[in-house]
């Protein structure tokens, strides 16, 4: 049986699903999406999800990112809060629906990970605040990566529909290519800045505890950081744009999600090692 915080997280996710279903129903009836109703549903979902995460955090005595379940919930939450703030500025049609869909997928997949809910008794969190700041900022940047991926999918859909000359259904409600390109650039800048701050905070800790960081984790984290900066630089130089930029953002998001697993495994391994050596390892969440 699910405990209250899990129920709250599930109810929050269901609100995102409701926003998605409502939009799909409207589109299938060839009617435009109801932005205000969608936003309300997403806001309600986010508030309920926040309550669930707050309860988890209170139990943990730290940011609720102690296991894969919590990490995925935190990413899902980050996607939505970032959408709530940036989406209203960018005002892109279907961006909210896409964000809600991705948040719901990530949140649901958190329930499907076998043993993903286990909390190690030797959690690194709650100690040095730099670790928590580094980890939570890294997960917020994952939220931005998620929004980038959502927008990239919308971009590819719009591009494909224009190329194949399809005008009906969902396609005519998609944002324009130029608007999406502009927002992609802004989100890329945001993602690189937040992720860099996260890596920088982690680095200050790592300098003092070089032996505590597993090499694969460090390599993957830096590779992802380089990957996003490379994409941003190429986009700024007009060398990478349009569909290739969209595909790059999607592939980077997939890579970011894929490296969560080795990082988590490494964390588990280090936590167990902690119990014997009784040192507090630097834990780079992503």
């Amino acid at each position: 049986m699910l405990i209250p915080d899990k129920w709250l997280l599930l109810i929050g996710t269901m609100a995102y699903v409701a926003a998605l279903i409502l939009t799909l129903l409207r589109l299938s009836n060839k009617r435009p999406p109801l932005h205000a109703v969608n936003l309300v549903l997403i806001l309600v979902g986010w508030v309920v999800q926040s309550a669930g995460l707050w309860m988890l955090g209170m139990n943990a005595g730290s940011c609720p990112i102690r296991n894969p379940f919590e990490v995925l919930q935190f990413i899902s939450w980050s996607i939505v809060i970032l959408y709530i703030f940036t989406g209203q500025v960018f005002r892109l049609s279907l961006f909210g629906t896409g964000s809600a869909a991705l948040a719901a997928i990530i949140s649901f997949s958190a329930y499907l990970i076998p043993g993903g809910n286990k909390v190690s008794p030797h959690s690194f969190l709650g100690g040095d605040p730099r670790i928590e700041a580094h980890a939570s900022l890294a997960l917020v940047s994952y939220g931005i990566f998620g929004l980038l991926a959502v927008l990239s999918v919308l971009y590819l859909l719009q591009n494909n529909s224009l190329k194949t000359k399809r005008n009906s259904g969902v396609f005519k409600f998609l944002p324009s290519l130029v608007d999406m390109d502009t927002v992609l650039m802004r989100l890329l800048i945001m993602a690189c800045v937040v992720y860099t701050v996260s890596v920088a905070i982690g680095a200050t800790y790592w300098i003092e505890h070089t032996n505590d960081v597993a090499l694969p984790k460090l390599t993957l984290t830096l590779a992802l950081w380089v990957g996003y900066w490379l994409v941003l630089i190429l986009r700024a130089m007009n060398k990478l744009f349009g569909t290739r930029l969209a595909w790059s953002c999607i592939l980077l998001m997939i890579a970011a999600l894929a490296i969560l697993w080795p990082v988590e495994a490494s964390r588990e391994h280090n936590s167990l090692a902690d119990s014997t050596v009784e040192s507090q390892p630097f834990q780079n969440v992503v």
Partner: peptide, 11 residues
Amino acid sequence: VAVELATRIFG
């Protein structure tokens, strides 16, 4: 129709 398509490209 042409204007609508242009809007989907340029906003």
